[in-house]
Nucleic acid binder design. Structure first.
Length: 762
DNA sequence: CTATTGCCGGTTTTT
DNA sequence: CCGGCAATAG
């Protein structure tokens, strides 16, 4: 409750919470309690200053961050969390556009196109303006357009400033792309922002409404905002000038997604009276880890110096280990994890991070081999899965018949005799008559507002197939009002034949059906709303939700995750693999010869290092496999920036040649990792997770009982068995169980420390 | 129209 | 080496 809102905060944090009037820039180092500050600031505004929660707006980048912030802020106040507006930029803008987008001529039921939708549309745009899809990759053109939109450059503006042939090409594609988007009543992600900006700019009365409502505006992860986002924040801030931005320039790793660190400079220029508050006390990591992180980041030229400190104590040294190749690297990681788990760590405490998704492969293989349960984060995103995407497209087309991209995707899924030829002809016909694909199908013509058009010049059987499809979608549209969302999804699955289509699939049918079941299940959250609203809200959440948002924290499994995705997370134990030149920093950023690119790689490394709370392992392979062949690699330059005294000598844990820790080979009681078809995605079924997480403080330090203090790697002598090496220690009911690999083929014995009289050998 | 083979291309991806 | 998609055969 509201008491003591300031009591648990350090002086800087307190200042950040109490400074509620005027512009504020909070530079928040990693683990400095940033979320705590924001949530307390919100609570302070509500409880102490009497600001209505209705007047507070906080913008984040991920839904997960928004959700957490909302929950925590609401918990600190008497506020119901739905009174606060805490949302992602994109979700907020989508809401604005649903409500007021009509002023820009935007249909209420506009679809939101993701990357793959955009690519389909761009291909079509390029074909229509006669551009060779081979010569200019749609993805490149799209990224150029995205960059333009992110910097408030619309088609017209882009057309005025062309200075190269490529820009000329892009401009042509851009124009057609915009035209097709409008025709489909669709917007892309960048449009959500750009159109909101434009709406506010062109319709000050609309902007004024939002301005009046939101007296206090906060922006999280400010270092990752792009220009439009910053501009929108400013638009909303208005006269009150109560804009509080929080970020860490050293953690800016999304410049390639048009994030613009210059926003921080702009902020200081635009609000020269801004109060700047630095949060430098780190509550997350050991001193060792924090120093290593500072060592890494210090070499960046362009940065705001921070003096991070912690009172967490030195902790254990950082382990730097080299494997011969990525298999050995992965093997080391997995064995070391097993050792840590035996010492009392929970698998959920451990994450393995890498630069590129391809690196997860060797790790997954090692995990499977050793029976180590793992959770791979987002290599194939849930909503990108074919079956989910198909279903979403059905829903989108039902809501918005103009949505040509959705139409194109599902018109023949399951196959209903509408092939490429037919679709091409229909497309041409639609374009010639200026209507959507859906409306170009002549026939039932229920669409009052579109003039009847001549029949598509196609064989009767093709026309019949198209008309049947159209009737199917129209029939479903009518049923939307009669059924609740879940029933409606079932109806779609049934009537479109999608259910049978999936079930008849021999290989992945079952898994795909499970995905659909999960999707259907998530629709249950929207049952309270009326059919129309439910569907719109559901589709919106589907478009704007990412995988990491639902990252399971409960699973008793090790997390495999990219460095980018790891931002904002923390783990007691972190392994960073691939600490090599050309991996981190990535070859692309080396070859670009742009120092800024290397600086971003360095920040990425810094992000990885600062995820670790207690232990950090940095791994590299001497040779790394690359597209079939393996090449020698050099240690990452970032390794050299970590002070030597923070690093242990290599060789900790189980040396690769020793068979002692092979106990679990193929024989794990956990059957939790399962291979699921060709997609590189494993699902952790954690139902049988029997390992109860113990309070770590009770367990560690591990060797606490009678007898000598032993740790892995120690040599010992036993009266009967002779000499051997400790491969594992594990606390067991007031004693310590030591696993020792004895020499001379005597094998591996597990001994209780208090019983077996083991002598430590130097 | 659908199924199969061959070829190109392969960082990161908060929304 | 592996996956996605485009040309080509069935």
């Amino acid at each position: 409750m509201p008491t003591n809102l300031l009591s648990g905060l350090n002086p800087r944090q307190r200042e950040a919470v109490e400074t509620i009037n005027g512009p504020v820039l909070i530079v928040a180092g990693p683990g400095s309690g940033k979320t705590r500050v924001i949530t307390h600031r919100i609570a302070y505004l509500v409880e102490t200053c009497g600001v209505s929660p209705y007047r507070i707006l906080a913008m984040t980048f991920t839904n997960k961050a928004a959700r957490e912030m909302k929950e925590r802020a609401a918990a600190l106040t008497r506020t119901r969390d739905d009174q606060l507006t805490i949302s992602t930029f994109h979700a907020f803008c989508a809401t604005v556009l649903r409500r007021d987008g009509e002023r820009l001529g935007l249909d209420k039921n506009f679809a939101i196109y993701d990357q793959s939708d955009q690519t389909s549309l761009m291909k079509r745009a390029m074909i229509e303006v006669g551009l060779d899809v081979k010569q200019f990759k749609p993805a490149n053109i799209l990224s150029e357009i995205s960059s333009a939109k992110s910097q408030l450059v619309g088609v017209e503006g882009y057309g005025l400033n062309k200075t190269s042939y490529f820009e000329e090409i892009v401009h042509r594609a851009y124009e057609k792309y915009e035209e097709l988007l409008a025709a489909a009543s669709a917007v892309d992600f960048d449009d959500l922002l750009f159109k909101t900006y434009t709406l506010f700019k062109q319709h000050p009365d609309v902007m004024e409404r939002y301005r009046e409502r939101y007296v206090h505006v906060m922006v999280d992860e400010f270092q990752d905002t792009n220009v439009v986002q910053y501009e929108i924040a400013k638009q909303l801030t208005g006269e009150y000038r109560n804009l509080c931005v929080v970020g860490d320039p050293d953690q800016s790793i999304y410049s390639w997604r048009n994030a613009d660190i210059r926003n921080i400079l702009s902020f200081q220029k635009d609000f020269s009276d801004a109060k700047v508050i630095a949060l430098e006390q780190n509550y997350r990591s050991t001193e060792t880890i924090l120093e290593a992180a500072q060592g890494v980041i210090a070499s960046n030229k362009h940065r705001v110096e921070k003096d991070l400190f912690t009172t967490n104590g030195k902790g254990v040294p950082i382990v730097v280990q080299e494997g011969y190749n990525e298999q050995e690297e992965a093997q080391f990681v997995v064995r070391e994890i097993e050792r840590l788990v035996r010492k009392g760590y929970s698998r959920a405490d451990i994450a393995v991070m890498y630069r590129v998704n391809a690196q997860s492969r060797a790790l997954e293989e090692a995990c499977m081999r050793y029976g180590l349960p793992y959770q791979l984060v987002g290599s194939t995103r849930f909503y990108q899965r074919q079956e989910i995407k198909d279903l979403v497209c059905y829903l989108r087309l039902i809501v918005n018949h103009s949505d040509d991209v959705s139409f194109g995707r599902i018109v023949n899924v399951p196959t209903r005799g509408i092939g490429q030829r037919t679709v091409d002809e229909l497309t041409r016909h639609a374009r010639d008559h200026g209507v959507s694909l859906f409306d170009a199908i002549d026939g039932t013509a229920e669409t009052a507002d579109t003039p009847r058009i001549p029949a598509v010049p196609l064989p009767a059987r093709s026309i019949k197939a198209l008309q049947d499809f159209k009737a199917l979608i129209e029939g479903l549209s009518e049923q939307n009002n009669e059924l609740n969302l879940v029933e409606f999804i079932d109806e779609i699955l049934k009537r479109t034949g999608y259910k049978d289509y999936i079930e008849s699939e021999p290989e992945r049918g079952e898994e795909r059906w499970d995905n659909i079941a999960e999707f259907r299940n998530s629709a249950r959250d929207y049952l309270d709303l009326g059919p129309d609203d439910a569907l719109t809200a559901f589709l919106e959440s589907v478009s704007l939700v990412s995988d990491t948002d639902n990252l399971g924290e409960k699973a008793d499994a090790v997390t495999l995750i990219t460095l980018h995705q790891a931002k904002g997370l923390e783990y007691p134990v972190v392994f960073m693999v691939g600490m090599e030149e050309r991996m981190l920093p990535h070859s692309r950023s080396i070859e670009s010869h742009d120092p800024a690119d290397i600086e971003e790689e360095r920040r990425l490394c810094y992000v990885g290092v600062t995820r670790a709370k207690e232990m950090l392992y940095l791994l590299r392979a001497f040779r790394r496999g690359f597209r079939g062949n393996s090449e020698p690699s050099m240690p990452s330059r970032f390794l050299a920036d970590i002070p030597q005294e923070l690093i242990t000598k290599p060789g900790i844990g189980a040396p690769a040649k020793k068979p002692a820790t092979r106990l679990n080979d193929w024989a794990s009681p956990f059957k939790q990792t399962q291979r699921t078809g060709t997609l590189a995605e494993r699902v952790v079924k954690s139902a049988d997770a029997t390992v109860i997480r113990r309070k770590r403080s009770e367990v560690r330090p591990a060797a606490a009982s009678a007898g000598p203090t032993l740790k892995t790697g120690d040599k010992v002598r036993h009266k009967a068995f002779g000499e051997g090496m400790v491969t594992a220690t594990k606390p067991s009911s007031g004693d310590t169980e030591v696993t020792v690999a004895f020499k001379d083929g005597l094998g591996i014995k597990r001994l209780l420390l208090s019983f077996a009289k083991l002598e430590k050998v130097e």
